[in-house]
Nucleic acid binder design. Structure first.
Lengths: 214, 214, 214, 214
DNA sequence: CATGAATGAGGTTTCATTCAT
DNA sequence: TATGAATGAAACCTCATTCAT
């Protein structure tokens, strides 16, 4: 059952032909636009298909059902953000704590704000069944990477590691959401980037203790 | 138009007879339960009515439509939290910055976590039309109170006040949400309370400068 | 069954007390207003009651159901018009044909236009089940009176009497309706009165033959 | 606003495939049958769909709402009658007044009585919102054609032209309605045809004056 | 008698999904 | 493969009517 549900949310086929890739892209893009212009509960498969310039039938060639369409969108976005965080963590290994934090926070904000329309529209559906679970799961991926990176900090060690990391991550996500839902003008985004670095750095500073030399 | 929309979300009548007050309470409670057990998109007015032990017709005596039912719930919750924050701000006037922050953060967490079931269920609907707007609007109410309180801090003054406050508030909201969606065990809630105080205090410390004596 | 239906459309009680008469009057008046302002299918018993300043329960004290309320209104109006026609017929007995027609047509128009709001609003419900039947039935009453009067005309005798009378009556009704639905300004009503006399007189002239003296 | 209302009553899509055209026809026919057998207020979209042998969903593919379904029927019928009158007016140009009137009246009656079931059933809905307006508007179209034709009469000229024409048209409509609601047997229809000609001719005779030669 | 809260059958409409063309 | 007409379950909401207070 759980297996079935999972399978039911996977895209039906991988687009091998060029035309198919274009179609899938158009459908994704159309979904976002409909989400933004009509809202989650007035998003219909027919409307998405029309916006994408294809027929409903075609949409169902690529997605087994409506849920999977939305799910794919959410998953794709979360994946991108998570990947950006992981990459930043990889690159920052061994740096001093403050720098680590700066790099990761900036990577997060940049990834999240790359397409504010997508980020904003996805909040409309993230409350659905399966949404929170996926968000949490992908969040854990990032938090794991954060943890691994922080282990390599030469100057400090985290107390209550797991929870502190959850706090940092939640603060980043919460602040970004707040800015996005307030309109996310470029100026606000710049401000967010800077203040979030400050916020995380200062919290990290009080949540760590100096690493004792061996 | 905006006026109409607003009106359409207002409760339809205020219960005058004792019987009616009981009914309204039962409907609210049933809504939360259905939200938790079935999710937002499987919440139907019929199901809510049945759970509340009344007929659909009765539900529609008090709420002009489904939206207004959910809206009322959200509004009530946000109001309570906002009121708690405002009260804390009032009480903390004139205290040192760190104490202020502690009081307010704890008031926020306590109000938000008073009924974790309600808080959690409301995330399911906050993405709907009107939801984000209400959340933002009520958030601004709290932020205003925060600002007024911080003006009275004897030891420090905030730089970039508006934005810093928005950050603090967003961090509180984001962290609480994260904990709620992860299950919100009593232990986690305690942790959240403590760490959120730390996080906000440390951020405030770097976002302020000493108040210059006259 | 037919008996039951009939009974079900009769007002429930005759108002003997003064207060009751006032209430019934208010309900009737409210019905007309709601009919005019909201249309037939948005006329609800609750709305009528509210407009009348009483509760639904009270409305149901005087009318067993919604149909009977509308029916009573229609019946009352048709009765008045019919009575006016009958009275005119009575008074015109023995007059020359042209005068007869003039008197009756004017009586009809005056009765029909006494309250244009009522007349207009009733077209909204006359299409309902039972409506056409009542209209036809009351029409026949008038036509009977017309026939009896015309028998006494000293100067002419009608050929194909029944049908000719039906034609005259239908023309009166049709023309009045047309004017009412076009707004029924006082000027139009005056015009209607005059032209309808002409129309009926001229038709009567060609539909009759001189009465042969014995 | 008026534009919106108008649009809301327009059919939703034009059938392109052959199958679709059949479907639309079946729905129209079913509507008439339900109107006749159940009456206007027991006409439900489900019932119509079932009678037409399609699903409700299909009905809503072609009509955006119930009103538009009824409206389309009414419009179609009125259009046909109006077109018949206009054509007759065109053909009768230049003929003597009495012949003109005869031709037009007969054209009107023939068109109106071509399908007595449709004509009768439509009285059930003509009282609805939009109905009277459409009736009046289409009536004006016919009256315009009548006016243009009468200008070409070689033997007579109309006094108070506009109103006289309205009277004639209202008489035709009223008499036809009367006959239809009384059952409209073929014999009655024949009688109506003849008497309506007489009635209109005689009225025209008194409402005109001889055309003065130049 | 009056009130108005409660009822619930039933109507309208939507929309995810299928399948013949 | 693409299309879009057809489906019908299921949601929302109304409103005539009843009955305890």
């Amino acid at each position: 059952m759980a297996q079935n549900e999972q399978t039911a949310l996977e895209p039906r086929k991988t687009p091998v032909q060029a035309r198919a890739a274009v179609t899938v892209g158009a459908i994704s893009e159309a979904t976002i636009q409909v989400l933004l212009s009509h809202g989650a509960d007035r998003l219909t498969t027919t409307r998405v298909a029309k916006r994408a310039g294809v027929s409903v039938g075609t949409l169902y060639q690529y997605y087994p059902n409506k849920q999977s369409l939305l799910f794919a969108l959410l998953e794709d976005h979360l994946d991108k953000v998570s990947a950006a965080v992981e990459a930043a963590c990889e690159r920052a290994r061994g740096k001093p704590m403050a720098e680590m934090v700066k790099d990761v926070v900036e990577a997060f904000v940049d990834a999240k704000m790359a397409r504010t329309d997508i980020s904003t529209s996805l909040y409309r559906i993230a409350g659905d069944v399966g949404g929170p679970a996926l968000v949490r799961q992908t969040g854990l991926r990032s938090q794991k990477a954060l943890g691994a990176m922080l282990e390599t900090a030469p100057d400090a060690v985290l107390r209550q590691e797991k929870f502190a990391i959850q706090m940092v991550f939640a603060a980043m996500a919460g602040a970004s959401r707040s800015v996005l839902e307030a309109g996310a003008s470029p100026a606000m985004v710049r401000n967010l980037r800077d203040h979030l670095v400050l916020l995380c750095q200062s919290y990290m500073a009080v949540a760590t203790q100096p690493r004792r030399l061996r």
